[in-house]
Simulated assay, not measured.
Amino acid sequence: MNPQDYEVDIVPLTHSDGGGFAAIVPELPGCRSDGETPQEALDNAYDAVRCWLEAAEEMGRTVPQPRRLAA
């Protein structure tokens, strides 16, 4: 699967959380990342998706279909 097929939600982090932006992949539990800019957070999220998919495959777990491809 292509990491870019998964939806990524980008949200600003508060100053007390360190600032920058969080990137959350709702379809993949626990898959998230962050970055100083929205683009950096998105790029980091795609790396996190690659790692999540690789780990799921190694453990024999089912990988959810990306929502935008399932429709």
Rank of each mutant, 00 (worst) to 15 (best):
45 A>D: 00
2 N>S: 12
65 Q>V: 02
31 C>W: 02
48 A>P: 12
22 A>V: 03
69 L>K: 11
59 M>W: 09
50 R>M: 14
51 C>P: 01
26 P>N: 02
49 V>Q: 02
14 T>M: 00
10 I>A: 07
57 E>T: 08
11 V>Y: 07
33 S>P: 09
20 G>D: 12
12 P>Y: 12
3 P>G: 01
63 V>D: 11
47 D>E: 15
66 P>K: 02
68 R>P: 07
67 R>E: 14
4 Q>F: 14
13 L>A: 08
62 T>R: 14
69 L>T: 12
43 D>K: 07
69 L>R: 12
40 E>Q: 06
7 E>L: 14
58 E>G: 06
51 C>S: 10
22 A>S: 09
69 L>M: 10
52 W>E: 01
68 R>I: 14
59 M>P: 00
65 Q>P: 05
59 M>D: 10
18 G>V: 09
48 A>R: 02
11 V>E: 14
7 E>V: 13
59 M>L: 13
60 G>E: 11
6 Y>C: 09
61 R>K: 10
50 R>N: 01
19 G>A: 06
13 L>V: 04
14 T>H: 13
21 F>G: 03
67 R>D: 15
54 E>A: 05
11 V>M: 11
29 P>F: 03
35 G>K: 05
10 I>T: 04
35 G>Q: 06
36 E>Q: 07
3 P>K: 03
52 W>Q: 02
21 F>T: 01
19 G>F: 08
10 I>Q: 00
2 N>R: 15
60 G>K: 05
55 A>H: 07
42 L>M: 09
14 T>L: 06
49 V>L: 09
41 A>K: 00
31 C>D: 02
59 M>E: 12
24 I>W: 04
7 E>D: 08
23 A>H: 01
65 Q>S: 10
22 A>W: 03
7 E>I: 15
17 D>F: 04
71 A>Y: 11
17 D>M: 09
69 L>D: 15
25 V>S: 00
12 P>H: 12
17 D>V: 01
17 D>G: 13
40 E>M: 08
16 S>W: 01
19 G>E: 11
33 S>L: 09
39 Q>S: 11
43 D>Q: 15
47 D>T: 13
10 I>K: 02
7 E>F: 13
58 E>I: 03
30 G>Q: 04
35 G>M: 10
39 Q>W: 14
61 R>T: 05
